[in-house]
Amino acid sequence: MNSMHWNVYLAGEIHTDWRSELKQAAADLPITFLEPVTDHASSDDCGARILGGESDPFWHDRKGAGVNAIRTRPMIERADAVVVKFGDKYRQWNAAFDAGMAAALGKPLIVVHPDEFRHALKEVDAAACAVASDVNQVAEVLRYVVCGELPR
């Protein structure tokens, strides 16, 4: 089938290698994956390191969030679809925010999380076009929407 090139933004948890796993599973698809800075310390400290230190943790975090938004907002806007993965190590408030932003922009949303998060994420899931339990399911969703191919 004919397929076009897609930009897919990968939002969500940064404590596992799910992005690499997804990229490998979808390596043969015409997709460019966009993503935030996934080094936790760099993401947390970028604002204060670049714009000047802050003694108040609120302003330290606010500067970092602002600088990170300069990267993430245009990527979400440019994306043809957004994948948001919720992991179990930490609550990913930023992932929920990215999911909401994608939904508000009308971006197709694929959410990934374990079954035990179903209740907590019911509103996010309701906004999603697909809710997957692992990255292999995400790769198959992308294969279908990008190329029109069902799993082999």
Rank of each mutant, 00 (worst) to 15 (best):
W93N: 07
R71K: 15
G100S: 11
S3W: 08
E35G: 13
A120P: 10
V131S: 08
R91Y: 08
E54L: 08
D115E: 12
K23G: 10
F33S: 05
M1Q: 11
E54H: 10
D45C: 14
W18N: 01
K107H: 03
S20N: 15
L22C: 06
D28Y: 10
R143N: 11
A126V: 11
F97N: 06
T38V: 04
A48C: 09
G12K: 04
V146T: 04
D88Y: 09
L22E: 00
N94H: 12
D45Q: 14
M75L: 14
Q24Y: 03
G66Y: 12
G47W: 01
A139Q: 04
E21C: 12
I31S: 02
G52E: 01
D17H: 10
V84E: 00
C129F: 06
L109C: 12
V37Y: 05
A120F: 04
G47P: 06
S43W: 10
V124G: 08
V131G: 09
H60I: 01
L150P: 15
A41Y: 08
K85G: 01
G106V: 00
V138E: 00
A69M: 06
D45S: 14
A41F: 07
T16P: 05
R19S: 07
I70C: 05
A27S: 13
E13A: 08
E140Q: 13
M1F: 13
P151I: 07
I31K: 00
A95G: 15
A25E: 07
V67Q: 04
L51T: 03
L142T: 02
A65C: 10
V124S: 08
V67R: 07
K23E: 08
M1V: 07
Y144G: 10
A25N: 05
L121R: 15
D28W: 10
T32G: 05
K23V: 01
V8C: 04
E140L: 08
T16H: 03
C46T: 13
R143I: 09
F33L: 05
M4P: 00
Y9E: 01
A128G: 10
K23M: 14
P108G: 00
W59I: 02
G66P: 02
G148R: 09
R152Q: 13
D44E: 06
F58Q: 12
A128S: 12
C46H: 02
H5Y: 08
K85C: 05
D88L: 09
G106T: 03
D17G: 09
K107M: 01
M1S: 15
T38I: 04
L121D: 05
L22S: 01
S20Y: 09
A99S: 12
A126H: 14
A130G: 02
A128Q: 07
H5W: 07
V82E: 00
D45I: 03
K89D: 11
K85R: 14
P30N: 12
T38E: 07
V37L: 13
D45T: 11
A27C: 06
C129V: 01
E116T: 15
M1Y: 14
L105T: 05
H15E: 03
K63Q: 15
R118M: 06
A103W: 11
A41P: 12
D134Y: 06
Y90K: 15
H119F: 15
I110Q: 01
D28R: 14
A120L: 05
K63E: 05
R73I: 07
I31R: 00
R62T: 09
D17C: 06
V112D: 00
A25V: 01
T32D: 14
F86K: 06
